[in-house]
């Protein structure tokens, strides 16, 4: 089913979604940037945008996530913090009793572009392969994706080269695109059908148009092999890199994580096992006990990021890890462009 609606009617969809029990996340323009954020009742989602600085990753894999809590025997003494390991009385110890209560929240991503839908596909491939990550699965199950077609990218986009302007089947529940002064909406799943039935509109004849977004700079991919990337000279273009890790923070598919035990000094025995984001641009990413660091140089870390997106992901998941969104280039304070590293400019 495909329907035609006006912009005003399209903007009713988020409230319909929240009425269906979803917490709606949509692109919102604040302070000159567009970012994905929970949609309040008085905020309008932004529809005419090119890039969002964050990505669905922020909601599917939060930056700081509590896995479970447990009690340790840490106490504050006059000497400072003291951790005494729980001592058992008899053969069976009190042991670690993890407390974990999964909170079920149905998310709806409204108005995200094709590249971001593809990033959800990549995260699914990584997180849901056996054994599935229970925290990710809990949020991903029953999620609603309302995709908004992007017609023209900016100077950092590369989805045309990678083919990520196509929405993989089963990942978007409805697809929307601007057409004339209104919008065309096509349902793609049962959940999408349910939503569109609430708009009570007549079917429009014809096929949902497929268009390739216009790119400001067109690239073709020339290097995607492990050894080829290693052999390339990158040190000159990386002089300006400050290792700020903005590339990995804004990347919609960077999922490297750290798992740590955290507690507050007010109640040190209440320990939370938390999962935080980790960046391969940091030295501690690859440091092992004894101080051996596998990725010691800036150049190695940059190449590692590119290799993780291309050869490593192709080998491990049969999927390219880059969705061509260009966030890593747009947000880089040093203006480092990985497209020039793996691709060649096409006139």
């Amino acid at each position: 089913m495909m329907i035609r609606v006006s912009k005003q009617e399209l903007l009713e969809l988020p409230s319909l979604l929240s009425a269906m029990g979803y917490s709606v996340i949509a692109p919102i323009r604040t302070g000159g940037i567009v970012k994905l954020a929970p949609l309040g009742s008085d905020i309008q989602p932004e529809l005419e945008y090119v890039r969002v600085v964050n990505s669905p990753k922020k909601f599917l894999l939060p930056d700081d996530e509590l896995l479970f809590r447990y009690r340790s025997t840490a106490t504050i003494t006059s000497y400072g913090l003291k951790i005494r390991f729980p001592t058992a009385e008899g053969p069976c110890p009190v042991a670690i009793l993890p407390e974990y209560n999964p909170v079920r929240e149905r998310l709806a991503l409204f108005g995200i572009h094709q590249c971001m839908v593809n990033s959800v596909r990549y995260l699914d491939t990584v997180m849901l392969r056996d054994p599935a990550d229970p925290y990710y699965k809990n949020r991903r199950d029953g999620m609603f994706i309302a995709e908004l077609d992007c017609d023209a990218g900016d100077e950092y986009c590369m989805c045309r080269t990678l083919g990520t302007y196509k929405v993989p089947a089963g990942y978007a529940d409805i697809r929307m695109r601007k057409s004339g002064d209104g919008y065309l909406i096509e349902e793609a799943t049962e959940a999408g059908k349910e939503l569109l039935s609430k708009l009570k509109r007549q079917d429009v004849k014809g096929k949902y148009p497929i268009s390739v977004p216009k790119m400001v700079k067109d690239f073709e991919l020339v290097t995607r092999d492990d050894q080829e990337i290693d052999a390339k000279e990158a040190s000159r273009s990386l002089v300006a890199c400050t290792l700020c890790a903005a590339c990995t923070v804004t990347c919609p598919t960077c999922y490297c994580m750290d798992i740590e035990d955290k507690f507050s000094l007010i109640d040190p025995s209440n320990v939370g096992r938390t999962r935080t984001k980790m960046s391969c641009q940091r030295r501690c990413y690859s440091t092992i006990a004894g101080g051996t660091t596998f990725l010691a140089a800036k150049e190695e870390r940059f190449k590692w990021r590119v290799k993780h997106k291309f050869p490593f992901s192709i080998n491990a998941f049969k999927l390219v890890g880059c969705t061509g969104c260009g966030n890593c280039i747009a947000c880089c304070p040093a203006g480092i462009d990985f497209r020039e590293f793996v691709g060649r400019r096409v006139a």
Partner: peptide, 22 residues
């Protein structure tokens, strides 16, 4: 091989080695 594995189930990508193996 030795890496500082955090999750043990191939989700955190801390133990990735060249070639894309965990």
């Amino acid at each position: 091989l030795e890496r500082h594995m955090k999750c043990g189930i191939g989700k955190c990508a801390r133990c990735l080695i060249p070639g894309g193996k965990h």
